[in-house]
Design a protein around this nucleic acid. Structure first.
Lengths: 135, 135
DNA sequence: GTTAGTACGCACTTTGAAGTAAGGTACTAC
DNA sequence: GTAGTACCTTACTTCAAAGTGCGTACTAAC
């Protein structure tokens, strides 16, 4: 248990978790509204700009361009421009992005399976109870 | 590969990912600035309010109370009030919260290991390149 | 009386991600 | 000239998460 947390968010001595750090920034990029959908889409393989646009329902050109720029800067997404007209740009996950997807997908799968019952379930119904043996 | 995505965010026919749904709401709760720190802290075992306050560096009483209220409403966190004065409230992960932690911790571990190099690394240095064999 | 500890709630403000609208490049077709 | 394609960029606006400040109730110590 101690091992499971001691490498998370660079816990400092005393068991304290700093709130502002690189991890938070990266998490915000990855888990952003459109970031997560783009990353998930690219787990299906490389896709061009307009394909990504069509798959992320409701995304604006502006948000798609911005999201891809951020993820590319983070080294998670690879951008490859084709020397053709009309312009064609292909995006794919980098090896780093693939690594991330391996730990991201199980979380998203869990959320996808449980969200409806949690969020849309009977109001005021908390989840199952765990024993609180604080000692 | 198709299996890895078809249960995520309830992908609808045509390979499109809806942006607004219960999954997004739950993800926002879990991955919120203080939500994730509270959940991680509770993977160490049950803790009282003031312990959580001390461990999440920089959190205000207001944000801690609000975050715990949200996570409790989601059924991820169990709240147990002691009949004592001064007031004492203990918090712990529910079984559902434990399930979530199992898929959340690997992601946070990955982020904790890689964030510094990604965010604070040399500017303009993208990550490793993956082949873009778009068909 | 004040201060401290404990665990909140309320009113209002700030901040940054996301959104809207318009603009741009380069080319083809009519 | 207009219209369309694909992939962006810029200026400004909106809005919800987070923040600030103050309040509540109780007991104990000074």
């Amino acid at each position: 248990m101690a091992e499971s947390t001691e490498t998370i968010f660079e816990q400092v001595p005393g068991g304290v978790f700093p709130a502002a750090c690189s991890s938070r920034v990266l998490l915000d990029h990855v888990m952003s509204k459109w970031g997560v959908l783009v990353l998930v889409s690219l787990t299906d393989g490389p896709q061009r700009w307009s394909d990504l646009r069509r798959r992320a329902q409701g995304i604006s050109e502006k948000m798609l361009a911005q999201t891809l720029r951020t993820l590319e800067a983070d080294g998670l997404v690879h951008r490859e421009q084709q020397p053709v007209m009309p312009p064609r740009v292909d995006y794919s996950l980098t090896p780093l992005g693939e690594e991330l997807a391996e730990v991201l997908v199980p979380l998203l799968r869990w959320v996808g399976r449980n969200a409806e019952a949690i969020i849309d379930g009977p109001a005021g119904t908390p989840g199952p109870v765990a024993p609180a043996d604080a000692g």
